[in-house]
Amino acid sequence: MLLITEKLKIEFQKAKRIFLENQKFCIISHRSPDGDAVGSNLGLRLALESLGKEVVSACVDPAPENSSWLKKADTFVTDFNYEDFDAIVSVDCGALKLFVFHEAKPEILSGQKPFINFDHHISNNGFGTVNPVAPEECSTSIIIYKFLQFCEWPVTIDIATCLMHGIYFDTGGLMHSNTSGEVFKVVSDLLSKGANLRKIVKELFHTTPINKLRLWGRIMERTYVNEDSVTISAVGKSDYDACNSTSHDTGGVIDYLNAVPNSKYCLLLSEDEKGLVKGSLRTQRDDINLSDVASQWGGGGHPKASGFGVQGKLMPVMSWKILSEGGNEAHGTEIKF
């Protein structure tokens, strides 16, 4: 039996009623979507379409290449008319700013129409009119799975594949600490329904173009551990140009930074194509809450995986320390240029 809290059941019931009583829906994934943002979006969309509903998937950025093979991943739109829909749905948006569309369409937050907010991030403050938010879950895709089970709506092969894709991505291939016994039970059920795990594994973790490898090489080459035992690296636009790549090609490399022994956590700073510097944080330790770390710069996420974004660009700083002739660091002078 699935574990669904009473609070989540109440939100599920509200969401179910909205879906049954309305016809047209727009499901929105967070900017720079990942496997879970795409998988949960399409899994829910396909389920609603099987009920005869009209659904559009939207995101300000396109689906990443490793998720583009999922059914209808190529139909995401980058803009839409609010008046065309009966209700708006967000998936995997850990903070309102990741939703983005409300900036040009503030009426989304007016309460004129239902706004269902499915998410699993602890940083989510419940910005929808209905909020099926469960920070204890490994992914938004597993919340969608539980919602479909709650509603007793069928899960087809394509739906199973989309949800498996999201779960597999957000658990790091079922290896992260958020992979509970229940997660394996859900994965087993999705496999029994025909989820294409082999394709998921290949696309998410076993397909790396040469330009992406070159970019990762640059990131790894400049990786260092600072005096606070934090593993840090950075990558910018000049690196993308040199490697014929984009900011999306940084995906996955942080798992290698997170493997540095005796490191408290790791941080990857990366410029994107829109003038934003993104910080991605990961840790293997149980005594560090990266959501608190990311919140210092307006970000958030999970205790072991979080992120933030700051407008600007990266500027490298070299630091040298001059030691006394005997090599005594206590009398060294630090020089930065």
Rank of each mutant, 00 (worst) to 15 (best):
A87K: 06
S50G: 02
I88A: 11
L276P: 00
A195G: 14
P209D: 07
D272N: 05
M220S: 01
K185E: 07
L276H: 04
F101A: 07
P135E: 12
H331A: 15
F115S: 08
E21S: 10
W297G: 01
D86C: 05
T78F: 10
G236M: 06
T207C: 05
K71Q: 04
V55P: 02
S229L: 15
K237R: 04
C243D: 04
K264F: 14
C26G: 03
D189P: 01
D255E: 14
F101Y: 10
T231G: 11
G301I: 10
S29R: 01
K185T: 03
G327W: 06
K313D: 11
V225K: 12
E221Q: 03
S291H: 13
V201M: 09
G275N: 02
V89H: 08
P64Y: 05
S67K: 06
G298C: 05
T171Y: 15
R285I: 14
E21W: 04
S67F: 07
I144Q: 10
H121I: 08
P114M: 07
S229F: 14
A37W: 02
L163K: 11
P62R: 09
I157L: 09
K278A: 05
T129A: 08
I4F: 12
N124A: 09
I88D: 10
V133F: 04
L42A: 04
L70Q: 02
L190I: 13
K146V: 13
I157F: 06
T161W: 09
V201A: 10
E137K: 12
N131K: 03
F205W: 13
H30I: 03
E65T: 00
L8S: 01
S123M: 12
I4W: 12
E227I: 10
D287I: 03
R285N: 14
G194K: 09
W216V: 02
L290G: 15
G172P: 15
R285G: 13
D272K: 00
D287L: 05
D189G: 02
V100L: 03
K7P: 00
C243H: 04
K24E: 13
S229C: 14
G326K: 12
V60T: 07
A87Y: 05
L70W: 03
F85R: 06
V230N: 11
V130S: 02
F25Q: 08
Y145K: 12
A160Q: 07
Y256E: 11
C138M: 12
V317M: 14
G300P: 15
F85H: 06
D170M: 07
H30P: 04
A330T: 15
Q149Y: 00
M220L: 09
S67Y: 07
T283H: 15
N262Q: 11
I167W: 10
K336G: 12
I159Q: 07
L268F: 01
K274Q: 03
E221Y: 01
C138N: 13
N41H: 00
Q112D: 10
I88C: 11
G332P: 09
D170W: 06
W297P: 01
T231Q: 08
C266D: 14
T140C: 08
T223R: 00
H30N: 05
W320S: 06
I144D: 08
M1A: 06
N226V: 08
R17P: 00
K321H: 05
H102R: 10
G52T: 08
E221P: 00
Y265G: 15
D92H: 01
Y168C: 15
D272G: 01
D228M: 10
V133M: 03
I200K: 12
L109N: 13
N262I: 06
S188F: 01
K237D: 03
V230Y: 09
E136H: 11
F19G: 11
V130C: 03
F19Q: 11
